[in-house]
Nucleic acid binder design. Sequence first.
DNA 1: TATTGTTATACTCTATAACTATA
DNA 2: TATAGTTATAGAGTATAACAATA
Lengths: 147, 147
Amino acid sequence: MPESTIDYGYLENDLGYVLRRAQLWVFQDLIRTMSPVDLRPAQYSVLVIIHHNPGLSQISLASALGIERARLVRLLDQLEDRKLVERRPAASDRRSHAMHLTLEGERTLASARELATAHRQACLEEFGGQNNYTTLVRLLAKFGAPQ
Amino acid sequence: MPESTIDYGYLENDLGYVLRRAQLWVFQDLIRTMSPVDLRPAQYSVLVIIHHNPGLSQISLASALGIERARLVRLLDQLEDRKLVERRPAASDRRSHAMHLTLEGERTLASARELATAHRQACLEEFGGQNNYTTLVRLLAKFGAPQ
DNA sequence: TATTGTTATACTCTATAACTATA
DNA sequence: TATAGTTATAGAGTATAACAATA
């Protein structure tokens, strides 16, 4: 039975359903385009946030990414094993770590950024142009955004 | 260090990042509002598709949902254990199953539908109105949609 | 040979609770 | 007491490969 005969009911007007389909597509394309630097979406976003906020704590980082601090620990373990990030002792609070990118981390992020350009272009084309893309990002940014 | 000092860099203009944040919010709200009928988003969408396409095969169902057929097996096992769906032998192809909702499955879906109304209302309010919601769904439906 | 459903495996991600060392 | 980081566990979801029954 071909897919074209499927009736999606009200699911095709369900925000959760279309969000999931879209995110699946975008993440798969991101994973594919990032494969030369071997970064998954979560790892990439960790590097971006640390780059723009050197010295921030793990709890701030987890909050910015919208993930649990327990999940962040293993993410950072992997990136630290690959010598891309560093946990340094925080000056003011000895419980806390100050997160920094290593030189290689900065280099990897720079490469990732170039690859991200190709990914963004793929999204633009898949989606139907700059205007729709911009509108979409603007509308989505209102949801669950860290204030 | 308060979150308000975080610099998200270009991440806040990254489609994958905002998609993930939005989906997280919507799914969490959906899980919360569906808790009286104990259905997760994937389970709910299974019931919806079967209801609108009684007798369809597992492979068609998996394709409609954008999940692997191996993943669907366990989803259906759970729902069948709860007597919400039935795998019946397909008339034309003895390899295949014809999926149906039980009477209790139809009742549960009807309850879920009513709860979904509250969820939709929560999304509308979180997001900022019917117009934005409709625009968003329309733009997202172009991504990775089954043709 | 190819397809449908199944089983198995490995990995990612989410959600929680509890522990330690500091505050 | 509360907080930052960690460890452990359970479940959900994703991605593959292989298998039996059937086409």
